[in-house]
Design a protein around this nucleic acid. Structure first.
Lengths: 192, 192, 192, 192
DNA sequence: ATCTAATCGAGACGGTACGTCGCGTCTTAAT
DNA sequence: ATTAAGACGCGACGTACCGTCTCGATTAGAT
């Protein structure tokens, strides 16, 4: 598939690509998203500015490519026979992702940018990291539920809490998991 | 309040202040938050750039001052004896606010910026519009509940749904209201 | 005339203007016209790049402003009762101008650029330094002659010799002056 | 000459060479010397950029190679028994060359560049097109004169007139020829 | 018929200047 | 003291051309 015709021409430099992705990650942590510039990325990566522009249009695109894989991995929890444990593990992962993770910081920055940049919004819409990972959990613990609605109920409270700048310590994954399960499948109470 | 020590000198121009607030609102709708600049605001307001900088530091500050009052008003719903109606009205107002309202667009832009700009985050933390209005509803329908937790459950799902770029039409305030009330007071089910 | 309305606004910085003109002159001597850049001029002048662009469009414009006055001065010779002396002094000044003068180097660079840049050609056409100074001499030694034709005969040979890269030492102002006068006014021979 | 040591290897592509020379000529007429770039030449010639650089260092070199032959041909006039006719024909050819000829446009551009690029100056010095052709005329009409001085007197006035951007229509080859002959051999006046 | 070696196309790469834009500060004169 | 006007230093923007560098594919003459 990606082995498209490369008839002629110098091949893309993999070191350059890797250096840019690393640089963008490093800069996010060091100076923050706002102070991150295409120029700064190129310089830190030791790469020509033109080379950056050749492959990516905006810093958002680079950051997305640099963090999407990590994000998906961090939010993918192993199945657990106990639904409560399963959901709790996921919400703990989400809590870590949104508050302490490197990839999560990238995601928050991008989601922020998406609120006033349609191009970034489209970028995020193309790969629904939170939705996909949440849906995986929902399929396991409540296969018959409306997946979209369940996703909103699962992610929403913590997402709001953290994105609106509230103290992350004051929200409890286990409590949210219990509440979620009680709602999504009222018959099989966990708090029995 | 602001009648402090202004002995002598030309007083602040109220028309200029109003023109700036109006201009920032107009620009948000016309060109979006990202393309909005201090220069553009000053020019549209017919005011010197210096004058803008004298009273506000950033476009975020101006936008916040221009929209906070409207936002609070739009999210304040009249009490209703029926808790379900009360909550539903609030969620409908929130839905309108986050998707169609002028002030809501400003809020989303600011919240987006807050993800990667501590100054904006501090600005929003100073006046918790969503939290305050939600707490008012919670106090009425579930005075004994944990207000913070209840707020997260009330606002979270819709907040996530819309901020993450999902189709606003596919989320139902009434359904969320019912779910919320069930979660907040499991004994008095509304779905009977 | 140039005291146009400057109602309001910070006045143009004269130090900045002078620094740019000085820098362009310095750079011409040090690195040559080709290697001279707007960026380099601004940096050497200790002035913002924007400030340079605000007042001049091209390096040619700056160079012209920086050298036109000097050029005119260098090519203006005091009248002499003896026509031969008068013309010889002018041709000596022209020789110096085209081969050793600072302002002359600027002129040559601009005239070179004018061969393939209409904007520079127009710039030079606006102030005919060589033509004007030559005409002054012609008016004195041959007031009845066709001034344009006489100018071409006076300046042409030396102009060609030097501009085409020939050895400046092998051309003699006095000889050219004698030939010129013999042609322009055959009645009053100088070689008599 | 170029049949040096080419044991083995693919021979130089003559079509590529011709295409480049043609392209450079075409570009000079279409976009002018300044806007002409190595990249543009290669693309118009349908040739790789590398191929251009392999055989020429600068656009000046290509242009010179592309136009020198034509230039010499255009400036070579057939001998005429009448010196006045001979010189007039040459000056007419020079007038056409400097104002309307393709090759002349190339020469002017190169001479312009030579004023601030030593490499181009050296290039032109290597083949003195104007000097050589003028000397041929001088040898015929005034074999005993100082050839260099005569060349300057012959070419100078028209050269200056046109290169300094004056109206080409206002200079008369026949008049200049008459003047030149009078200067070069004062004893045998043409105006009798 | 193979080998050898310089060519050619394509195009990525590190540089560097371009001219523009917004920033936040400043210096005027006018109110 | 505040205002409008606008110049200023700063620094990033995205583009263009520079000249160099891989690549794989040609293309002859020499073996």
């Amino acid at each position: 598939m990606s082995q498209g015709r490369d008839r002629g021409g110098r091949p893309r430099s993999e070191p350059a690509r890797a250096a840019v992705l690393w640089a963008v990650d490093d800069l996010l942590a060091k100076v923050g998203y706002a102070a991150m510039t295409m120029k700064g990325i190129a310089e830190l990566a030791g790469v020509s500015r033109m080379t950056v522009y050749r492959w990516w249009s905006t810093k958002a695109e680079i950051l997305f490519e640099a963090s999407a894989l990590d994000a998906e991995e961090e939010l993918t929890v192993p199945p657990d026979d106990d639904p409560f444990e399963d959901v709790t593990r996921y919400l703990e992962a989400l809590h870590y992702f949104l508050t302490r993770s490197h990839a999560g910081a990238a995601y928050r920055a991008l989601l922020g940018e998406a609120q006033h940049d349609p191009a970034v919004a489209a970028l995020l819409a193309g790969r629904d990291i939170l939705g996909d990972t949440a849906r995986a959990v929902v399929s396991r613990v409540a296969p018959d539920a409306d997946h979209d609605r369940a996703t909103a109920l699962l992610i929403g409270p913590m997402f709001f809490w953290i994105l609106s700048g509230r103290d992350p310590a004051r929200i409890d994954p286990a409590d949210l998991a219990r509440t979620f399960l009680a709602q999504i499948s009222p018959d099989s109470r966990v708090d029995g």
